[in-house]
Amino acid sequence: MSLQAIKASCSNCNLRELCLPIGLNEDQMQRIDTIVAVRRKVKRGSLLFHNGEPFSSLYAIRTGFFKTCVATEDGRDQVTGFQMAGEIIGLDGIVNDRHTCDAVALEDAEVCVMPFDRLEELSREVTVLQNHVHKVMSREIVREHGVMLLLGSMRAEERLAAFVLNLVQRLHARGFSQSELVLRMTREEIGSYLGLKLETVSRTFSKFVEDGIVEVKQRHIRILDTDALKRIVNSQRCD
Rank of each mutant, 00 (worst) to 15 (best):
S202R: 13
R44A: 13
Y193M: 03
C238V: 15
R76C: 11
G75I: 12
V111E: 03
S138P: 07
L224S: 02
R170G: 04
C13T: 07
L3E: 12
A162F: 11
T72F: 06
S46V: 07
C101V: 14
N25H: 04
G175D: 02
L149D: 14
S138Q: 11
L119S: 05
S192K: 06
H220W: 05
T80P: 03
D211Y: 10
I35N: 00
S177K: 01
G191K: 02
L106N: 02
Q178W: 06
S11V: 09
E120I: 12
M185I: 05
R124W: 12
T80H: 04
N14L: 06
M185V: 03
P54K: 09
M114I: 14
L20W: 15
T200H: 07
D77G: 07
R170H: 12
E87I: 15
D97S: 12
E110M: 01
S192H: 04
T34K: 15
F55C: 05
S46T: 06
N14Y: 11
T127K: 13
D225Y: 07
G152Q: 09
K43D: 10
H220L: 05
D227I: 05
G152K: 05
A5K: 14
G146A: 08
K67D: 01
P115I: 10
F65V: 08
R62N: 02
E157D: 14
N51G: 07
F55S: 04
V142I: 15
L48D: 03
N25R: 05
L167Q: 06
E53L: 12
R237Q: 12
G93M: 09
F163W: 08
C19H: 04
H99R: 07
G23I: 06
V128P: 02
F82W: 13
E157M: 11
E180F: 07
I221K: 00
V142S: 04
T68E: 08
E215M: 09
H99G: 01
H172R: 13
G23L: 02
L165I: 15
A103P: 00
Q78K: 13
L181H: 08
A8G: 09
R187S: 11
S179D: 11
H132V: 01
L15T: 02
Y193Q: 01
H172K: 13
L48Q: 01
E107N: 04
G191P: 06
A109T: 08
G212F: 10
C101I: 12
Y59G: 00
T80Q: 09
L196H: 02
K217E: 13
R143H: 15
G81K: 05
N51E: 15
E120C: 14
C112R: 03
Q83Y: 14
A8V: 00
A156D: 12
S179I: 04
F65Y: 13
M185H: 03
I223P: 00
Q30E: 11
F82V: 00
T200N: 09
R16L: 10
S153V: 10
E53M: 10
K67V: 09
S235F: 12
S57R: 01
E210H: 12
R16A: 06
H220Q: 14
